[in-house]
Write a protein that binds this DNA or RNA. Sequence first.
DNA 1: CGAGCGTTTGAACAGCGTCAAAACAAGTGG
DNA 2: CCACTTGTTTTGACGCTGTTCAAACGCTCG
Lengths: 212, 212
Amino acid sequence: MLSQTAARPAPAPLAPDLPAAVFSMRFARDEEIYGEGEEAEYVYKVISGAVRTCAFDAEGRRQIEGFYLPGDLFGLECGAAHRFAAEALCDTEVAIMPRAALDRAALDDGAAARALWSLASEALRQTREHLLVLGKKGAAERVVGFLLQMAQRCRGGVVRLPMSRTDIADYLGLTIETVSRTFSKLERDGAIALEGARQVALNLGRLNAFAA
Amino acid sequence: MLSQTAARPAPAPLAPDLPAAVFSMRFARDEEIYGEGEEAEYVYKVISGAVRTCAFDAEGRRQIEGFYLPGDLFGLECGAAHRFAAEALCDTEVAIMPRAALDRAALDDGAAARALWSLASEALRQTREHLLVLGKKGAAERVVGFLLQMAQRCRGGVVRLPMSRTDIADYLGLTIETVSRTFSKLERDGAIALEGARQVALNLGRLNAFAA
DNA sequence: CGAGCGTTTGAACAGCGTCAAAACAAGTGG
DNA sequence: CCACTTGTTTTGACGCTGTTCAAACGCTCG
């Protein structure tokens, strides 16, 4: 998926101890960065914008694996292929590095290999948090779990949501109607304040009461 | 949690390119191997028996993160503490290696560092599979997803389940009643044959029709 | 201003959770 | 060998929550 957009050099490294990214690219809203099952040729880091990774099951239902915000790394696989597709949530710029360069670095640089371990562990930690949220039975608990995750990453009481209700629903295993209703209910209960559909002010104290 | 059971030397390495395990231990059914939040002092490998890792939320509901069968590694964290507790599903023997030995190996051996990356990536892959199962809306889809996972790991049409219905329910975010009913329904539909509560013969062809 | 998409809200329905009890399995002691 | 106990699994009836189908509302961008 390295097509329409012009590639520019990107000096910054993806992470400490890892080689510098080779170039950067821009993607338009909803544009595919790489596809499900595609060869894992590159590793990516969000410079600006936001990204979702997702997979489709037999019935065509979509599961979103994660959201990636500026500074976040994604697309780092150990296997040969991407298990999830990656798509831009909005106009997005990403730094890109060939996977081969990482493999090479891991081979002759212990620090790089440890950095890759650390990155994989961090991804694991995040996925496990997601798992805990999906394990919850109530819709409110899941939505609150999602909001708290976002708040933690944005470090702020006011959270901008770059994703649609549909994206949130597919992240939480709910329907958009349930997500929307739950937002409304949380607002009625004073746990959040909606400042438009894509921005939420959190009342952390009261929110934790719903965290179940 | 290195208490009652006698420790014996364990020569086999936890994984290729990694130092050999230092000793082994036995745990009785439901015995805790390490606790949630406990310092991640050791890494473990199942020799015989089976293990579950789990966490409890504010309301005391339990989420099972994974099941580990003979040959599986668990408890490998990058951070300082275990995010999930580990408990023996039945009488279980595990090989144990101090985490410090791994850190040391990773520092002065590139192959070891890469092995750790590979292990973390494999854990990530498994957790993501679990995520996909939890994202499913129907109970049948989740139970079938679980059974297919187990079948893959046991490589056989007949699967022995070392875990209780409660464990399965907490793994899938369902109740034991729903799990039990779903088993019964799958059997009525000819997708599985229950040979006692803890052993199932799978009809893979028909099972995939429920995989949704 | 109007068109189109995303979001919110409403009403009816289905599926899962809850509560309760029965069936079953495994172990204990007579 | 049987009676009894304990723990797990299965089954039933009912209520609640989330899904589905449908319509109204509100942005955003031509």
